[in-house]
Design a protein around this nucleic acid. Structure first.
Length: 298
DNA sequence: CTCGACTCCTGCTGGC
DNA sequence: TGCCAGCAGGAGTCGA
């Protein structure tokens, strides 16, 4: 589910309620997600003060007072939901993210809520992940970036270090479609299926074009396209399609500004006049849907 | 090394 | 109405 903008938004929501707070209680409700969770996870969280957060690619790092950080990956369907004990009941999310009228009280615990944190100040944070593609781990603070899940990640696309030379280096010489190269977290960290499609549309580059042919003028268009679409999506609170909600329960709204993602058959924005635009096309690459305008993207 | 195919898991949607 | 194939924002593993 979540790509960099959604992860960034979730992290900010968590920081707003957890920074400086002490975790009074931590309950792990199952021993594994896709993989076994570290033993002692709940014990390590209980009683710890949360010092701060940072994001690396699609991973969130929650720094605990002491020697460890909690590493969080939301996978496809992971959500973090923060609620204060004094708040009014929050309606359950139904299909399409629509709120049902179910009352918050006396509901059975959500069977997909795998970790629950409660702070001394009354906040309750649930980690929910129906598909269980997410990951949680404890990582020594002194060597966060050496964690196996983080060590191989490519540059942060919104960092200054991610400049034209860095993008070209990531794409140069690769004989795979540029779509796949940009999805590869070892090349650039944080892009996923939505924002790759959107960035390629903005840069007028076909997702089928070989990565090796991008360096040069095309990379010069692609770099600002990547940065802009990510920045705009963060400003919009991410994109809410199915599972994703912000930690505060609000929905992101960037999905309303998708130019191509999920819009097969529709006309793309300001397609050149004269020739008939066949509309936005959908194709499958590496088993994932790609959306693009065959006329504008070359 | 590099690739695509397959796999993990649950839930929703759309077509019959 | 009910059933079921297909699809979903991710990423590790495997074999060619």
């Amino acid at each position: 589910m979540p790509e960099l903008p959604e992860v960034e938004t979730v992290m900010r929501g968590l920081a707003a309620v957890l920074e400086g707070q002490v975790i009074a209680r931590a309950e792990l409700r199952r021993p594994d997600l896709r993989r076994p969770l570290p033993r002692g996870l709940a014990a390590a969280l209980t009683g710890a003060r949360v010092e701060g957060f940072r994001r690396r690619g699609k991973y969130i790092l929650m720094r605990l007072e002491g020697r460890e950080s909690l590493l969080i990956h939301l996978g496809m369907s992971g959500r973090m939901v923060a609620r204060h004990r004094d708040a009014a009941p929050v309606p359950r999310l139904g299909p399409q993210g629509a709120a049902s009228d179910a009352r918050g009280h006396n509901q059975p615990p959500d069977r997909h809520e795998h970790l629950v944190l409660e702070t001394e100040s009354g906040w309750r944070i649930g980690f929910l992940d129906p598909r269980r593609f997410g990951q949680l781990d404890l990582v020594p603070r002194a060597a966060e970036d050496a964690h196996p899940l983080l060590a191989g990640l490519g540059p942060e696309p919104l960092s200054e270090a991610f400049d034209l030379a860095a993008l070209e280096a990531a794409l140069r010489g690769r004989r795979t479609p540029v779509k796949a190269a940009l999805m590869d977290q070892r090349r650039v960290a944080g892009l996923g299926n939505i924002y790759v499609s959107e960035a390629l549309f903005r840069a007028r580059i076909s997702p089928r074009r070989l990565s090796a042919t991008i360096p040069g003028a095309r990379a010069a268009r692609l770099l600002p396209a990547i940065k802009a679409v990510l920045r705009e999506a963060i400003a919009a609170g991410g994109s809410s399609l199915r599972d994703y909600v912000r930690a505060d329960g609000e929905l992101g709204v960037f999905q309303e500004r998708f130019a191509v993602y999920g819009r097969a058959g529709q006309r793309c924005a300001d397609c050149p006049g004269g020739r008939a635009c066949g509309g936005i096309a959908r194709l499958v690459q590496s088993g994932r849907s790609t959306f693009y305008c065959p006329l504008k993207q070359r």
